[in-house]
Design a protein around this nucleic acid. Structure first.
Lengths: 247, 247
DNA sequence: TGCTTTATAGTCAGAATGACTTTAAAGAAC
DNA sequence: GTTCTTTAAAGTCATTCTGACTATAAAGCA
């Protein structure tokens, strides 16, 4: 309105304005031991030294936010970049409150990643430690990461309804029981097994049966047939969670 | 990884890195003359001087991206800030390709706004001109705005399915025919009138009838009853568009 | 040899949807 | 003024989808 930056500045002098820092933050979810877990790192520096936070870091001058997110994810989890390249990574939203970082203006692009159960992370990079934490048991997180995490949880819960995203939580071959576990864990509800099975199998392209009917001895109970993720990405009609309302 | 900014930098010196500029871009939609229109501005400066672009501008040091988006929207449309405060504004996603602006590193947070049919904008601020353009007839836009606009269109199309968002396109009181027009215009399909009516009226909280049955003489045809937007924000079950697939 | 657990195959009623038909009430064409 | 066209609004009917259940099969465990 009145400040010089209200329009695109004449000369585009990169140093004419107080600079913004741009970071990425990652809400990485997995299903482990029938509970939803989030990847958290312990901060090694002030502010919030010793507090837990979402993994993340600065976007470098020559990379996009998504490239930065994948790089950080590889660093924090110790996964091979090749593996990280195949993971489901989705931009959540951007957090830009002027006071969200006490030191300077930091705008953060948040991403959500869904991964199958992975080995324990090796606190890489600048993070003191990294670990999988059951969702909900995380104490207060640094910065506005509590809010980001809540937004991410809401988003994946909603996306399970109308996309085939749930398979991203599963290993390459999985049983319908494992797939159902994903829904039950993220939504926090119990689903009727026969109905879930019917819905998944009658949705074209959601899953495809693995050929020579091998069976998995998960633990107790009758062995189950194995499936792979299908070619579809959307669910029509959607698989709505019980109780109606989203979020 | 190797660059100094891979982790949070020690001193947080705001000038230690090549600065990023942070902007907002707005995809503002309205339904006018049974067609979907987008608010575009003509660029008054290089690059892309004379080309059409989405309205937008820099985020000021003391405002959030959403505040910047509302400020820019008020400037470009000539609407009162009080009016703009009530409009539906939704963050779309952030575009951060390193080369999206030829001059410097610009990260842009895109927003989508849905407005009722508004008066012609008065090319305010730094934009040479501003106008409503039928969606699809916009020539090539500046920067990556073509892509942003396509993403925005896909997003609102999807949100019409499972939210009550369509009422944001309508004036405070509207007929079911006008509401159906919104769906048909955004989706580009014809909907069965009786079925649409049944769906809307049986969804609790989608719309509420205006009391003393006034009627609108839109043009030809039987006058229709008026409705207001209801209290609900989500649609359960959703109103799926014909043909299944999203986007 | 039973429990308990999980997979898998069905059944059945109610809800939701898609395709239509019909009547009513306006403006436009003649 | 009569007829045609357009839109609103009410209602029908068959199909599909879903939620709630029952039943059987195949494993591990006590």
């Amino acid at each position: 309105m009145t400040a010089p930056a209200a329009g695109r500045p004449e000369g585009y002098d990169p140093y004419a304005f107080e600079p913004f820092a741009v970071t990425v933050d990652l809400a990485v979810f997995t299903v482990r031991d029938e509970r939803l877990h989030v990847l958290l790192v312990e901060r090694g520096q002030e502010p919030f030294r010793g507090a837990w936070a979402l993994p993340g870091g600065f976007v470098l001058p020559q990379e996009s936010a998504e490239q930065a997110a994948r790089r950080e994810l590889a660093e924090e989890t110790g996964l091979l970049p090749r593996t990280v390249a195949g993971l489901h990574l989705e931009q959540l939203r951007t957090y830009s409150d002027p006071d969200r970082d006490p030191r300077m203006r930091v705008v953060s692009v948040a991403y959500t990643a869904l991964v199958p159960d992975l080995p324990e992370p090796r606190g890489g990079g600048d993070a003191a430690r990294a670990r999988w934490t059951p969702y909900g048991t995380d104490g207060p997180l640094a910065f506005d990461h509590e809010r980001i995490l809540a937004d991410a949880h809401e988003r994946i819960g909603a996306k399970l309804e109308y996309t085939c995203l749930a398979t991203a939580f599963c290993p390459p071959e999985f049983t319908l029981g494992e797939l159902r576990q994903v829904y039950e864990t993220v939504w926090g509800v119990a689903l009727d097994r026969p109905n879930f099975r019917r819905k998944v199998l009658t949705t074209p392209g959601f899953v495809e049966a693995v050929e020579g009917p091998p069976r998995r001895t998960g633990g107790r109970g009758k062995p189950a047939a194995l499936y792979r993720a299908g070619a579809a990405s959307a669910l029509h009609p959607p698989l709505l969670r019980p109780e109606g309302r989203s979020s």
